[in-house]
Amino acid sequence: MYTAYVADTPNGKKITIALEELGLDYQLRLVDLDAGEQHAPAFVRLSPNHKIPVLLDERSGQSLFESCAILVHLADAAGKALPAQGPARDLVLQWLFLQAASAGPMLGQLWWFRHAAPEPNPVALERYTRETHRIYGVIERRLAESRHIGGDGLTIADLAFYPWLATHEELDIDLDAYPAVADWLRRVGERPAVQRGMLRTREAAHV
């Protein structure tokens, strides 16, 4: 049994999608970011960076923070979505870390400056729009070579990218320029486990 501490954000959805796809038993704890629950001492003991998600293994007492580290742990525990060793594993990890290092920060900043900034900032919007298009282009070229971002079959790289790239409408990104991304989003989004994982955080946020 795992306890997943999440919010209704792309990084939170990564974890619920993975838990559903991998068929692992879990319970959900919603962290209210607007109320500042991520700064509560009990939560900070689990996540020193004051960020969601956090995964707690109720059997061992081990806790993990950082979404991509959690995805690696879950994939290894389930024996799915990440090759055990060799070049195939390295390939998945490269794309997984690209999501953590580039896609999440750039798309997240674009969303903030479009929807949450107290006043318009044209320079920031131009920068993060340009970077977001660049990242969609990187994934477009990757998907032109392979049906999945991480190589053969669905991997945790796909699960990490999906909730971020699925925000294209909120980011005002026209997918007509990225047909391979659009097809991949459709295929991954049709998976029942992905649909359940996307809904779990949304439902929890409205309880």
Rank of each mutant, 00 (worst) to 15 (best):
M1F: 14
T3Q: 06
A4P: 13
A7V: 09
N11C: 05
K13G: 04
I15P: 07
I15M: 00
T16L: 00
I17C: 00
A18R: 10
A18G: 10
L19M: 10
E21Y: 03
L22Q: 12
L22F: 14
L22T: 14
G23P: 13
L24S: 05
D25M: 06
Y26I: 12
V31G: 01
D32Q: 15
D34K: 10
D34H: 12
A35F: 10
E37V: 13
Q38S: 08
A40H: 15
F43L: 05
F43C: 06
V44N: 04
L46C: 09
S47A: 09
P48I: 00
I52N: 03
I52V: 14
P53A: 04
V54D: 03
L55Q: 12
L56T: 06
E58W: 11
R59H: 07
S60H: 07
G61C: 10
Q62R: 10
Q62S: 07
S63R: 01
S67Y: 12
C68N: 11
I70Q: 09
V72I: 15
H73E: 03
L74V: 06
A75Y: 03
D76Q: 14
A78K: 13
A78P: 11
G79V: 07
G79M: 05
G79F: 11
A81R: 15
L82T: 14
L82F: 15
P83Y: 11
A84Y: 14
Q85R: 14
G86C: 06
G86S: 12
G86E: 04
P87W: 05
P87D: 01
P87C: 14
P87I: 15
A88R: 15
D90W: 07
V92S: 02
L93S: 10
W95D: 01
L96C: 10
L98K: 14
L98D: 08
Q99C: 15
S102C: 11
G104A: 15
P105D: 14
P105W: 10
M106H: 02
Q109A: 13
F113T: 03
R114W: 02
A116K: 06
A117M: 04
A117H: 06
P120F: 00
N121F: 09
P122W: 05
V123K: 00
E126C: 08
Y128G: 02
R130P: 04
T132D: 00
T132G: 00
I135M: 03
V138G: 03
V138N: 02
I139S: 00
E140R: 02
E140Y: 09
E145Q: 04
S146H: 11
R147M: 07
I149P: 00
D152W: 13
D152H: 09
D152G: 05
L154Q: 02
A157W: 08
D158R: 03
F161N: 01
Y162C: 08
W164M: 01
L165F: 15
L165W: 04
E170C: 07
D172V: 15
L175N: 05
D176R: 05
A177M: 02
A177Q: 03
Y178G: 04
P179G: 01
D183P: 04
R191Y: 08
V194G: 03
L199T: 08
L199N: 14
T201P: 06
R202S: 10
A205Q: 11
H206T: 10
V207M: 14
V207C: 14
